[in-house]
């Protein structure tokens, strides 16, 4: 039936006929990843040329210079404050702000990234702990499920940009400054996926697994430690991966309205004040790299825990 409806499936793939090294790489992860990166770079360069073209040609006009299309073309990728910087400009900026300056310097992106990541991690730990606690409460007490769940959900409908300054000001008035307000805003954002995932995970054991505990007359405490908690861990890790990325966003957002002196958010804000688009974009690239690192780190912990719990390799 399948061959009748789709005759193309019987045509052998060209690549399959000669499996060289390139072919192998292509069928692994590397090929697709490189293809996507190359496509993004091409699109990016095209976009950079197109978006900066008008600005460059107008400036040549204002200075009364005749410019050929070729000159304008090359200048679109070498502007100080381009509308959209070209990838290599960002790489040069990253090189300048990461490799060329001491990591403790205020001009170093490492310094700013560390600032933001510490707030991210503290907020992540607080938010995850809160999320797990809420989930445990919601699973064990019916009244909590009815009374808390609407608040948990509505907390996430409030725009964080609107309440972040309020939180910072309120905490500042009681003497909390620096890392803690940022961490609290991170925690506010990242507890939500943990609560939702953990509630689902704690409810995951099937009827037989729960009946078994009942035949032992196990207490809720024993059911929690020996059944619900281990059964919930795969759900917890899925949530934690989401939560740590959101937590980073929370820390950056918290740095925006607060006049923070350091952090990736402060760097973004300073960049936009002075129209330093290259600085903004390099901060964005660093933020993305941090998010990737954090998610990968959670993934590694997950791998270790899964292995210790006898997961199928």
């Amino acid at each position: 039936m399948t061959s009748g409806t789709s005759p193309t499936t019987s045509v052998p793939l060209v690549g399959a006929a000669r499996p060289g090294l390139l072919g192998k790489l292509w069928r692994g992860n590397l090929g697709p990843v490189l293809a996507v990166v190359a496509a993004i770079l091409v699109i990016w360069y095209v976009a950079a040329v197109l978006m900066n073209w008008t600005g460059v040609s107008e400036r040549f006009g204002r200075m009364g210079q005749e410019a050929t299309a070729g000159t304008i073309f090359w200048q679109t990728m070498a502007e100080d404050r381009p509308m959209l910087p070209a990838p290599h400009q960002i790489l040069v900026e990253l090189d300048k702000t990461i490799l060329d300056v001491a990591p403790t310097s205020r001009r170093s992106l490492v310094h700013h990234a560390v600032e933001t990541i510490s707030a991210t991690l503290v907020g992540f730990l607080m938010g995850s702990a809160l999320g797990v606690l809420l989930a445990v409460g919601i699973v064990h007490l019916r009244t909590l499920q009815k009374s808390l769940m609407p608040w948990v959900i509505s907390s996430q409908t409030v725009p964080i940009l609107a309440i972040a300054p309020i939180i910072v000001v309120v905490l500042g008035s009681i003497g909390l400054r620096g890392l803690i307000p940022k961490a609290i805003i991170s925690a506010y954002l990242c507890f939500f996926p943990v609560t939702i995932g953990m509630v689902k995970g704690l409810e995951a054991p099937d009827r037989l697994q729960r009946d078994l505990m009942r035949t032992y007359s196990a207490s809720s405490w024993e059911i929690f430690w020996k059944l619900r908690l281990p059964a919930s861990l795969p759900y917890l890790f899925a949530s934690l991966k989401v939560a740590i990325a959101i937590s980073l966003v929370g820390a950056i957002v918290a740095e925006l309205p607060t006049g923070a002196q350091a952090g990736l958010g402060a760097r973004l804000l300073a960049g936009s004040y002075y129209g330093q688009t290259i600085q903004i974009w390099s901060a964005l690239v660093v933020a993305a790299a941090c998010a990737a690192l954090l998610v990968v780190a959670v993934g590694l912990v997950e791998k270790v825990v899964t292995k210790a719990m006898g997961g199928r390799p």
Partner: peptide
């Protein structure tokens, strides 16, 4: 009887906890 652990129960499925040996 259940509270005094009078019986052992074997279910239709083994219901072993997969994270335990």
């Amino acid at each position: 009887a259940r509270l005094k652990r009078a019986y052992g129960f074997v279910f239709q499925a083994p219901a072993l906890y997969p994270w335990r040996t």
